[in-house]
Design a protein around this nucleic acid. Structure first.
Length: 457
RNA sequence: GGCCCCAUCGUCUAUCGGUCAGGACACGAGCUUUUCAUGCUCGGUAGAGGAGUUCGACUCUCCUUGGGGCUGCCA
């Protein structure tokens, strides 16, 4: 047990930015590593943007990434009364004053300002950035209550941190300047100043802050694009921290065990989608085979091409597989072939369509390149003839047939037309494994059909 | 403009003054004698510039340059 308490305090705008969620990850890891508490505070004072839907999206993203929080969610709007009480306190002690001001957009009214010390230096030791200092005279007094009477971020944030007994504030780099102000508020209130850790920003290829113009910027988009939460989590963590050795793909347990704020980098990190994609592939390979198989079965069902339910592992093209165990073995084999070459979980349905249904699309380019070539018709018919005679319908046996035809000159001329004829595409799993899975009947039918309808003489 | 922060391969980074400056992604070449992918082997590319401290500096200090942040009745 420890007394450490950290918080993630996003504004629920409906979309959780990756830079923001990285702060959540670091907070979570720090809490889990130290045995402290990870709190969630919803800064919902912007009534226009924060809706129940937006808050639901936020919770959803956090749950997706496995960022579970301790204690009840703290809603900032519910603490407004406290914020204003504290402001009165500051007013009474002379740390704040009211003044008539005109805002940028021309609004004139009375706002409450926090009175900054006029001399001295404000200092703090940031856990990642080191010693920070700024002359008080370089910071101007700032507003803490709007003319409409609503508290402003600075005061709400500090009061909530006091009320939630937050000991460490881990947040984005863009808050550094605010920290000097906030420290003054803590002191004016006689409260203990928490420890700070400011995280660098995530930048794009041009070195500018990463925004939605640079690609997926919101957590939900990664989910939609077939990324695994573990991969995003791991990648974001690595963007600014490493365990000190060459390990990059880490289990959650390792992360919790090894994470230290002191080792977080100060410099801004460029977001590299290619490395994230690679990492996603690594995590997909780690999915237990049976689990991946079930994902495939599920995606085939959602394609509407398989009438069977998940539990039955139906294989509509292979009526010869009567036994449940045979069908499961069929799926296991297919899944194993596909898993190693999957980088994203999207499109799984498309890649197995031709295995579970005769209703699959033909890629026009592949057809043009591989089938509409002189002699292909005869070639396919001849292959069908030869395959028909194969006693043992297995990948090695089928490969032997083509190998013999090629006479050691490369099997390309046969392999490519067969692939397109039976699957409609130019890529996929190993050809002979594919034929083995499809079975004799389907393979022969497709070869002959392609020969008649698409292949050139 | 003012204030604050930052600076190693293209990118993420290792290095707690002495290293052939290491790894990963990406890239190139090759092998696994079918596509795609995986896997394996090999390869190239880095300490912004300048002073200083030191026997010795990527590492410490200063300057320059470059980049970023903040400078709201946003958060």
């Amino acid at each position: 047990m420890s007394d450490i308490r950290v918080r993630f305090a996003p504004s629920p705008t409906g979309k959780v930015h990756i830079g923001n969620i990285r702060a959540a990850i670091y907070n979570w890891l720090f809490a889990r590593h130290t045995g402290g508490k990870f709190l969630l505070r919803v800064e919902d004072t912007d009534l226009e943007r924060s809706t129940p839907e937006a808050i639901a999206v936020l919770f959803d993203c956090m749950k997706w990434l496995g960022l579970d929080w301790d204690e009840e969610v703290f809603y900032q709007t519910k603490n407004v009364k406290r914020h204003l009480e504290v402001v009165d306190q500051l007013l009474a002690s002379g740390h704040a004053y009211k003044v008539e001001r005109t805002s940028r957009d021309g609004k004139t009214g009375v706002v409450t300002m926090f009175r900054m010390p006029k001399e001295g230096t404000i200092e703090f030791d940031d856990i990642v950035k080191g010693h920070m200092a700024k002359k008080a005279e370089d910071i101007q007094d700032f507003a803490i209550v709007r003319s409409d009477g609503s508290p402003i971020f600075h005061i709400a944030n500090v009061v909530d941190d006091i009320d939630q007994r937050v000991t460490h504030i881990i947040r984005g780099d863009d808050h550094v300047e605010n920290t000097f102000k906030h420290i003054c508020i803590f002191r004016a209130l006689g409260a203990e100043v928490p420890r700070y850790a400011h995280l660098s920003m995530i930048v794009n290829q041009q070195g500018k802050p990463y925004s939605k113009r640079d690609g997926a910027a919101f957590v939900g988009e990664y989910r939609e694009q077939g990324y695994l939460p573990e991969a995003l989590f791991n990648y974001l963590l690595l963007l600014g921290w490493n365990p000190g050795d060459d390990r990059e793909v880490l289990s959650r347990e390792e992360m919790v065990k090894l994470f230290e704020l002191e080792k977080v980098h100060v410099t801004a990190a460029m977001f590299d989608p290619k490395k994230l994609a690679w990492m996603n592939g690594e995590y997909i390979k780690k999915i237990p085979a049976a689990e991946f198989r079930d994902m495939l079965v599920r995606s085939s069902a959602s394609e509407g091409s398989s009438s069977g339910s998940l539990g039955e592992y139906a294989v509509s093209l292979r009526s010869d597989l009567r036994d449940a165990s045979e069908r499961i073995a069929w799926w296991d084999y297919l899944a194993a072939q596909i898993q190693v070459r999957t980088k994203f979980l999207t499109g799984l349905g498309d890649s197995i369509r031709c295995f579970v249904s005769d209703d699959f699309p033909f890629d026009e380019k592949a057809v043009e390149k591989r089938l509409r070539k002189p002699g292909v018709k005869a070639l396919l018919l001849d292959l069908a003839e030869r395959f028909e005679k194969v006693a043992d319908w297995s990948a090695p046996a089928l490969e032997a047939v083509v190998k013999e035809l090629s006479q050691g000159n490369g099997m390309g001329p046969w392999v490519h037309p067969i692939r397109v004829a039976v699957s409609g595409r130019g890529e996929g799993i190993g050809l002979f494994e594919m034929l083995q899975l499809l079975g004799r009947e389907t393979t022969l039918a497709r070869l002959r059909k392609a020969a008649e309808t698409m292949a050139a003489d």
